[in-house]
Structure formats: structure tokens, C-alpha cells
Amino acid sequence: MRVFVAGGAGVLGRRLVSQLVARGHEVTATTTGPAKMDLLRQLGAEAVVMDGLDASSVGQAVAQARPEVIVHQMTAISGKPDIKHFDRWFATTNRLRTEGTDHLLAAAEATGVRHFVAQSYAAWNGIREGGWVKTEEDPLDPTSTGAAAAAIRHLEDAVLRAGGAVLRYGAFYGPGATDDQVELVRRRQYPVVGNGAGHSSWVHLDDAATATVLAVEGRAQGVFNIVDDDPAPASEWLPHLAVCAGAKPPLRIPTWLARPLAGRTAVTMMTEGRGFSNAKAKRELGWQPRYPSWRQGFREELR
């Protein structure tokens, strides 16, 4: 198929482009500037410079590519994590998930693209009631009122209305995905908050890319949690990450101290976050993660 990957030069996009090309698809991949065009060409894609926040730029790029499928992987997450000021850190990504999604969907409609796949998020942000592990039938946390949560809701609603597939990826790890977090762990600046009972779900970049290829080829519709088999509390995964990174055990700080220091999002993630089940993705996409658990994945990636 002819596949248009918006955000193809990103940390996940590069792996997705490579896998799509290896499976015989004709790929057009976008980047925000000329610096990464050679990289995309080396992966076997047609490289295009596109501004995901400019409707004209998006429309022109999609019209020229004439794709059968559009995959939305546009984000702008870089630099040191700033969970305390989460919405400020995610400001451009939030726009790409709202305005950028709308531009891509409009371009798809204008050019007759029938299938649309988009990146969403499912790491710790499930509804904070009931059990620790959520399925696609459970809503994302409805009490999250920040811009980042609103942007995800906008993206999911828009894509589902268009008959597309929403892939809720867990927290990424792998080369280029966790470097900043690992550095914080090594500096002992990434503590366990409170009892660390909040659960998270992880997924290796290569596994996320494989699931996306399957969603493209199967013309999947609906919501899918793309996470590994092992949702776990922060009190387990963070110390394990420290061991794998050759760091000292993470510090532990009480909730009352973490709230002014790290912010509400960090406290929620560490103490109340919910993990996610991948049963639907396995059943309907035929997906099997190469790394069933972050326990193995952290060890192999950070050794």
C-alpha cells in the first residue's frame, strides 16, 4: 500500500517507516525540516518537509503522496522531562494532537484516503477507580482537565468519528526514548512518590511499530491498547530501571513533599495511575510483543 507517515522522522516514526518498507509498502514520511530528509531516504521512504500545524502544508503533502493510509505520529516531545509543568512541556504536541489531527483528517477527506491510524497514549492515565488494569472499554481518566488530556480526547474522538484506528501506546522505551529519564535516574532525581502503588504500562519502540504495521495492513478500526504484558507499580519498575542503568536505588519521598516539588501529574502517576491490558490488540491485530515485559526489555536495552 501507499502509506503516509506524518512524523516519520520521530523516535517511533523511524522504526515504523523501516518496518513498512521492509514489508513492501510504498512510504512517504514527513519531517519538519530538511535536516532529517536524508535519514528518511536511507530508510527507503520518500521524504517530505511538512508543517503539521499548517493546513496548506499538510494538504499539499498528502495530495502529492496520494496515500491509501495516513498514520499520524506527530509529536514534539524533546528535552528534559518537565512533568511538573506538563501542559507547558507538551504545548506543541497538544496542538499537533488537535490542530494537526484536524488538518490530516481534512486532507484525507479531500484526497479520498479511506484509512487513518493515529497515536494516542495509555501508560498510567486510565480511570482511577476499580482495578489497576484497564481495557479499551474503560475510559481514560475523566478527572484529567489539563490541555494534554483534552488534546488526547480530541484526537481520539475525531479519529473514531472518521472510522479510523486509535493506538494507545504505553510509555515508550528503547534507544532514544528513555535517555532523559535514565539520566534523571542516574542522578537520583527520579524518586518513588509515596507508596509507589500507581501502575504504568510500557512498550518497546519496535513492538509499538510492529503493532502499527498490523493496524495499517488490517485496516483496523477502533481503540487498541499497545502495551506489554506486564503493567506494574512504580515501586517495581523504577527500582528495576535504576538497577539496569547501573544507578543507585531511587529516593523515596512522601506525597505531601512531592506535590509542590514535582506537581500533581507526577503524584497521580506514582500513586494512583492505572495500567492497561493488551488482550484486544493480541486478539484482533494478531500482535505479539517481542518484549513481553519491561523487566526483560530494560535489562537488554540498558546493559
Rank of each mutant, 00 (worst) to 15 (best):
H204L: 10
G146C: 08
E156N: 10
N195F: 09
G130C: 09
P139N: 08
T145F: 15
D179F: 07
T135W: 04
L140Y: 00
L155D: 00
G164F: 09
Y169D: 02
I152M: 15
A209Y: 04
A171P: 00
R128D: 03
V182L: 08
G164R: 02
A158F: 11
P175S: 14
R161D: 13
A150I: 00
G176K: 05
F116R: 07
D207A: 12
A150G: 12
N125R: 14
L167E: 04
E129R: 15
E183W: 03
F116T: 08
E156P: 12
P191W: 00
H199A: 05
Y121C: 09
A151P: 10
A147P: 08
L205F: 06
V193G: 02
F172T: 08
W124I: 00
R168Q: 09
L160T: 10
V159F: 12
W124K: 01
A150T: 02
D207N: 09
A165T: 07
W202K: 03
A148H: 15
P191T: 06
D138V: 01
T210G: 10
P139R: 05
V192F: 12
V159D: 00
H204C: 05
Y173G: 03
G196L: 11
H199E: 02
Q119C: 10
F116K: 11
S144M: 15
P142W: 14
A211C: 08
A177S: 10
A209T: 02
W124Y: 12
Q189D: 15
G170D: 04
S200T: 12
V182N: 01
G176L: 04
T135E: 01
Q181L: 15
L155I: 00
D207C: 09
L205T: 11
E183P: 00
R153K: 14
L140D: 03
V182T: 04
P139T: 09
L160Q: 04
P142A: 14
A150V: 03
Y121Q: 12
G170R: 11
A151D: 03
S200P: 01
V192P: 07
R186S: 14
H154P: 07
A118T: 07
V133P: 01
F116I: 11
S200R: 02
A123N: 13
G174K: 03
V117W: 12
D141T: 03
E136M: 11
G130D: 07
Y121W: 15
S144Y: 10
D206M: 05
V203W: 05
P139Q: 12
K134I: 00
H115P: 04
R187M: 15
S144H: 14
K134Y: 00
A123M: 09
A122F: 06
Q189F: 09
V192Q: 07
T212H: 07
Y173R: 07
H204Y: 13
V193L: 11
G131T: 01
R188W: 02
G170P: 04
Y190Q: 14
N125K: 13
P191A: 01
A122I: 04
A165L: 03
R187F: 13
V193K: 01
V166R: 09
A123R: 06
L205N: 07
T143M: 13
G198M: 02
R186I: 13
A197L: 05
F172Y: 15
A165V: 03
A211G: 07
